[in-house]
């Protein structure tokens, strides 16, 4: 079975392939421009609680808020 989960549920060190973004066109556009597009591999570097997640996509690190991370759906690798 394919494991499709929100990015926010991944633990540090885990990776996933982006499959979908949940949100309006404005939200999607912003995420897409940063290279977080369906097909891209995202690795969770750190996940702080409270606090943001640090993720790595094609060589770039981003800090993303929990709310944002829960709207990025990935297939766990």
């Amino acid at each position: 079975m394919l494991m499709i989960v929100p990015l926010s549920s991944l633990k540090p060190g885990e990776r996933g392939i982006v499959v979908n973004l949940q949100g309006g066109p404005g939200f999607r556009n912003r995420v897409l421009g940063m290279g977080i597009a369906p097909g891209a591999v995202v690795q969770v570097v750190e996940a702080y609680n409270p606090g943001p997640m640090v993720i790595s996509v094609s060589g770039t690190r981003f800090a993303v808020g929990r709310g944002m991370a829960s709207r990025i759906l990935v297939r766990k690798l």
């Binding site: 949100g23 939200f27 912003r30 995420v31 940063m34 943001p52 640090v54 770039t60 690190r61 981003f62 800090a63 993303v64 808020g65 709310g67 944002m68 709207r71």
Partner: peptide, 8 residues
Amino acid sequence: SPFVIELP
């Protein structure tokens, strides 16, 4: 708004 920032 949702939060995301690049960490150089």
